[in-house]
């Protein structure tokens, strides 16, 4: 009995319960759609149909199964998203560092950093595509721009959140700037830095897929548009929808796991103070 109570009392249990509820609701509607539409998979397919389309070995374009096709295109899109993500992280961190070192730079750049967050960068995707003239390059650029802001803003917030006493401690040791940053400022802003990484990981993926839809070629977004236009079975569309949703969510949790590995002290419980 104790075990049962422990399981039903946990947060994970209720999360799973909600997932089950969502699946049931989905299937009820899918059934409804099946009864009333000629091509139910265009509106709402059964989840079993989606799973079938992923696992089936039927070639849908002559040489590839649906799964192979999604994976190949995902590779093209996600690798660019990852490159852009890493570039965005590096630039964001360096900018936060420079802003923290120099008040003048902070004053010049900070309003523009805010602006990047406020203006619809994704809306600019087509023009960036036109400027770079290369779809792979524009995926990288847009993913980098979208990553850049959350990383820079959160890291800067981390530098600013350092307590006055921590500064004074380093001052009393007559530590130099380099020691101040390597021993204190940078390690203490790591949790904030990771907050930025967690926010921007799904954004980088979204951006990369969106850029795909603007132009033909390879990429999840292209495949998605083609499937929507009826160039291939509609299940490819659903495969991509679920795949990108899962990748988006996983990217968020993956960064969380990396953070836990790097900062073992974070999960320790605070003792009474």
């Amino acid at each position: 009995m104790k075990i049962v109570r422990k399981i039903t009392g946990s947060k994970l249990f209720f999360t799973l319960l909600w997932i089950a509820a969502l699946i049931i609701i989905w299937e009820v509607f899918a059934y409804q759609v099946e009864q009333t539409k000629r091509t139910p998979e265009n509106v709402l397919p059964h989840l079993s149909g989606v799973v079938d389309s992923i696992t089936s070995d039927k070639k849908i374009n002559g040489s590839q199964t649906a799964f192979q096709m999604v994976m190949e295109n995902a590779g093209a899109t996600l690798s660019r998203a990852a490159i852009g993500y890493v570039i965005g992280i590096a630039l964001g961190f360096i900018l936060a560092l420079v802003m923290s070192l120099s008040g003048i730079v902070e004053k010049i750049v900070f309003p523009y950093l805010m602006l990047i967050q406020i203006i619809p960068i994704l809306g600019m995707a087509p023009i960036i595509n036109a400027i770079t003239g290369d779809i792979a390059a524009s995926r990288i650029v847009i993913a980098a721009i979208l990553t850049f802001y959350p990383v820079a803003a959160n890291t800067l917030a981390g530098f600013k959140a350092v307590k006055r006493e921590s500064h004074e401690l380093m001052y009393s040791y007559s530590a130099n700037k380099f020691q101040l940053y390597t021993k204190m400022m940078i390690p203490s802003c790591i949790p904030y830095f990771f907050t930025g990484l967690k926010i921007s990981a799904p954004m980088a993926i979204t951006a990369s897929i969106l850029v795909d839809t603007l132009q033909g070629g390879v990429g999840l977004g292209c495949l998605l548009s083609q499937s929507l236009k009826g160039a291939m079975t509609r299940y490819v569309f659903w495969d991509i929808v679920f795949f990108s949703a899962i990748i988006g969510i996983l990217s968020f949790y993956l960064i969380g796991i990396i953070e836990k590995l790097l900062c073992p002290y974070k999960k320790l419980e605070q003792k009474g103070r």
């Binding site: 307590k163 006493e165 921590s166 004074e168 401690l169 380093m170 009393s172 040791y173 007559s174 530590a175 020691q179 021993k183 204190m184 390690p187 203490s188 790591i190 900062c263 002290y265 974070k266």
Partner: peptide, 26 residues
């Protein structure tokens, strides 16, 4: 001098002994 503040001002990411070693790293 050495300072001791109202809050211990230890660094979360360092173990106790690494915290104590900090000034000698500087």
């Amino acid at each position: 001098y050495a300072m001791v503040f109202q809050s211990a001002t230890l660094y979360d990411w360092r173990t106790v002994i690494k915290n104590v070693e900090l000034p000698l790293e500087i």
